[in-house]
């Protein structure tokens, strides 16, 4: 922690800009919030933000998907109930409702987190091949999306020696 902030100060002195690059590959609440919390905090620390939404993460950038992020009841050992019960009808809806109620007591909703990231200068990118095979059209995307880019663009940001790159 101390080392990281010292490096940050050193980088700032030399005129380098630190950058946080995150691949957001999952569309469930428990995978979105860790990325969003880091992405909303980074600008306050003087760190630039680029979020790359791919696979199930991309669904969150659609007008329909942004309001309906869920949390699965199956294969999620953190959910306080027997795992097998998760396959019963309505269980995902129930766990989603429960977790949303708890989370939104403290944190902004998913659409509001995306707005916060944009307001603080962060950039939101949609993965171009995912658009293709998931059948997502440009007009389906929420207005917060900056652009549609592919692997080469992502590797360009990640090659920045000042970049912190995470895959969530």
């Amino acid at each position: 922690m101390v080392l990281a902030t010292e490096q940050l100060q050193e980088a700032a002195k030399q005129g380098f800009k630190k950058k946080l690059v995150i691949v957001v590959s999952k569309g469930t609440i428990d995978m979105l919030y860790p990325a969003f919390v880091l992405a909303t905090t980074a600008p306050a620390m003087g760190i630039e933000v680029d979020l790359y939404f791919t696979f199930w993460g991309l669904r969150v950038l659609t007008k329909k998907g942004v309001k309906s992020a869920k949390i699965g009841a199956v294969g999620n050992p953190g959910i306080p109930m027997p795992n097998l019960m998760g396959v019963l009808p309505g269980m995902t809806a129930m766990t989603t409702k429960m977790m949303k109620k708890r989370i939104e007591k403290y944190w902004p909703s998913v659409p509001d987190m995306i707005k916060m990231i944009k307001e603080s200068g962060g950039r939101i990118h949609a993965c171009s091949p995912t658009m293709g095979f998931m059948g997502v059209d440009e007009k389906d995307l929420i207005p917060e999306v900056d652009d549609i880019v592919g692997a080469s663009t992502f590797l360009g940001w990640a090659s920045d020696p000042e970049a912190i790159t995470l895959f969530i």
Partner: peptide, 10 residues
């Protein structure tokens, strides 16, 4: 620790 890290970076 969070405020400490933030204040150092800013």
């Amino acid at each position: 620790p969070d405020f400490d890290a933030w204040s150092k970076s800013r």
